[in-house]
């Protein structure tokens, strides 16, 4: 995309100066609508919610504060951490926080390994089997999450396929439905397409000539992967990793359908505390706990993008 810049400046003379990304207010104005939408309906509610979690129950938070039970109100003007203290001393929350982090790490590692494996296979060997594999990995993109969760639930249930199949072989296969194993399976299933698309497209961009040169210099498979391919496709791999992790850490549908009542992931707890237990403040505190984790991952994503922009000489 950036490669075309220099040649254009050379041949197009004065017009290209004007047509390169020009500093004009019209761009700012065109870009404004989606940004305003996000500011009003995401940014503002998040600020409001932060206030609510700190015990500010006036203004727009009034309705929620009246409907909700067990709301900690701030008596001073500085807010109170009472809701955070309550949630973070709740053993169930701490267990679920641990479960959420564990599921996120395991699912992300599995997804990225699978996507890397498929991507490398496609890059280094190619052929029909490799295309079949990458096609398979994209199938979940076609299926709404509600359906896939339900399908996975019936597949690994007490009378599901896995149990039936192994019963014919005389083996007692464990029931995975309503366990954290099913949640991890479901998370991998739903996250695989995006990671595979991202990583295969990143790996395909590595020039064949470089791999060829490394091979001629005597590098083995592992060496080529670690020293040539992975560093060159580093940015897409980081993007795939962060998006997968952010998706899993805040997920609701997959753990809601596939997981046990307790312990389960925080997405389910948030929903339960809001609707079933009618404790919106505690629910919001949990949302911020997940948000802090996701922000850390988002920072990694942004850093990776800036790094790639710098490498291309754009920053």
């Amino acid at each position: 995309m950036t490669v075309t810049l220099p040649e254009r400046t050379a041949d197009a003379g004065t017009t290209s100066v004007r047509k390169r990304r020009t500093f004009r207010p019209v761009g700012f104005l065109l870009a404004l609508p989606p940004v305003l939408l996000i500011l009003v309906f995401v940014g503002f509610p998040i600020v409001l919610a932060l206030g609510f979690s700190l015990g500010f129950t006036g203004g727009l938070n009034h309705t929620v504060a009246i409907i909700g039970q067990n709301v900690h109100e701030s008596t001073s003007g500085f807010g109170t951490l009472a809701a955070y203290q309550e949630v973070f001393s709740n053993q169930r929350f701490l267990t679920d926080l641990g479960v959420t982090v564990l599921v996120t790490v395991l699912a992300t590692v599995l997804v990225i390994s699978l996507a890397l494996g498929i991507g490398l296979f496609l890059k280094l060997r190619g052929g029909r089997i490799a295309r079949l594999l990458s096609g398979l990995a994209i199938v979940p993109l076609f299926i709404p999450v509600v359906i896939s969760s339900w399908a996975i639930l019936t597949f690994y249930s007490g009378d599901g396929f896995m149990r039936s199949f192994f019963a014919h072989l005389g083996v007692e296969f464990p029931v995975w439905s309503f366990t954290m194993v099913a949640v991890i399976i479901g998370s991998v299933w739903t996250s695989l397409p995006f990671a595979t698309l991202m990583i295969t497209s990143g790996l395909q961009a590595v020039p064949d000539a470089m791999i060829e040169a490394a091979r001629d210099a005597g590098a083995g498979f592992v060496r080529i992967v670690l020293s040539v391919i992975v560093p060159m496709a580093f940015i897409p791999i980081i993007i795939a990793t962060t998006f997968t992790a952010i998706g899993v850490v805040g997920s609701f549908t997959v753990p809601y359908f596939l997981g046990p009542n307790s312990p389960n992931m925080l997405g389910v707890d948030m929903s339960n505390y809001f609707s079933s237990f009618n404790q919106p403040q505690q629910s919001v505190v949990m949302a911020f706990a997940v948000f802090v984790i996701a922000s850390g991952l988002a920072a990694l994503y942004v850093w990776a993008n800036f790094r790639s922009a710098k490498e291309q000489g754009k920053a």
Binding site: F44, P45, I46, L60, L266, V284, A287, F291, A298
Partner: peptide, 15 residues
């Protein structure tokens, strides 16, 4: 994308 959907909807609901 970074803020958990469930938490976001809970906060949007009050607005």
């Amino acid at each position: 994308n970074a803020f958990p959907k469930m938490g976001l909807f809970v906060t949007i609901a009050s607005l």
